[in-house]
Computed example of a mutant assay.
Amino acid sequence: MQPAQPNTRIRRRETWQRVWCGALLASTVAVAGCDSAVGIAEDANRPSRFDHATTTPAAALPTAPAATAPVATPTGTTTVPPADAPPVGAVPGRPLAAAAVQSWAADLRTATTAELQTKCWTLAPRNVADMYEDKQAILTALAQPGVASADALTWKSHATTVVVDPAAVESGYACPRVYPAGTEIAFNEADARHTVRRYLSRFVGTPLDPTDKEGAYPLVCKASTDWDPTGSGRAVTPPLAGNPGKLTGVTKFTDQELSSQRLHADYVSVQVPVTNAAGVVATRTFTLAETAEGYCVGDVSP
């Protein structure tokens, strides 16, 4: 039987997080992640299905540098998965999809969380740790036939939904997003923070991957984007689209202190301390809008 047609757009709402939180609370398990601080320590290393808005940064890891995020190893580029790779259902009309996901699925079985975070550098480290936790559930879903829509490739089981960005299959190694079945597909604040992390890492000359460039992976909102983070009803051009050099002079940022806050509708603000060439540290606020592909940076202040 063919799976039901997925939503044609990954939406912002975080219903899937509330479902998991409610389920765990109902079983009397104490869940710190339901009301936890955010930042690189938790984004990268603490598996959690909950990502509520907060302006309180998490404590830094003892061994983490107080500067930029580390450079990651490039993802694989082969379209030929290992012979013993787990089965992945074909997607009608998308002949490269199954092989690209199969290459990732082969790593899922044996790789550590840290290794998957490195390979899947376009995804928030926190989401990788969280979403990839139940490996067997993911592999069961992937064995089902896939379905394509304009914005997503989807595999479903009775318990799990696996979603891949269609553009990701072109590299031959596609890292998916994973959700409990029946919940709404959503981007979250970890995605927004990771967008800023990638943007700043590029800006200071240490991208998470050598291929992480604006031409290949756009992070800045396009000039055509309707920009209205205050909900005024009067959309304008995203300020950063017309002033890409707004952060000129920034030399590093404090990755451990990334924090975020939900704004009006499909907008999130991310705060992070940055340092200029004179050694002066100031907290900058990035405002991001959600698109069908994820979050884009539309403004930086002050």
Rank of each mutant, 00 (worst) to 15 (best):
Q2F: 06
P3H: 10
A4S: 09
A4L: 11
R9T: 15
R13Q: 11
T15S: 13
T15E: 12
G22E: 12
L24E: 14
A26N: 12
A26T: 08
T28A: 10
T28P: 02
A30H: 14
A37D: 13
A37G: 07
E42N: 12
A44F: 05
P47T: 12
D51H: 13
L61I: 06
T63V: 13
P70K: 01
P74L: 01
T75Q: 11
V80Y: 01
P81F: 00
V88S: 00
P92H: 10
G93E: 08
P95F: 05
A100F: 12
A100E: 08
Q102F: 02
W104G: 00
A105R: 03
A106F: 00
T110K: 11
T112F: 08
T112I: 07
T113E: 06
T113W: 00
Q117T: 04
K119D: 07
K119I: 02
C120L: 03
L123C: 03
A124Y: 09
P125S: 06
N127M: 15
V128K: 00
D130V: 06
M131A: 11
E133A: 12
K135E: 07
I138S: 01
L139D: 05
T140A: 14
A143E: 02
Q144L: 03
V147P: 03
A148T: 03
S149D: 10
A150V: 13
A152H: 07
K156F: 03
S157T: 13
S157M: 09
T160P: 05
V164G: 02
P176V: 04
P176M: 01
R177V: 07
Y179G: 09
E184Y: 03
E189T: 08
V196P: 13
Y199P: 02
L200H: 15
F203G: 02
T206A: 12
T211C: 02
K213H: 10
K213W: 03
E214Y: 09
A216T: 13
L219E: 14
A223I: 01
S224E: 14
T225C: 07
R234Y: 05
V236I: 13
P244K: 08
G245H: 14
G245I: 11
K252N: 13
T254Y: 03
E257N: 09
D266Y: 04
D266T: 11
Y267D: 09
V268T: 15
V274S: 07
T275M: 04
G279D: 06
V280I: 15
T283A: 13
T283M: 10
F286R: 01
T287V: 15
L288C: 08
A289P: 02
E290G: 08
E290C: 03
D299E: 15
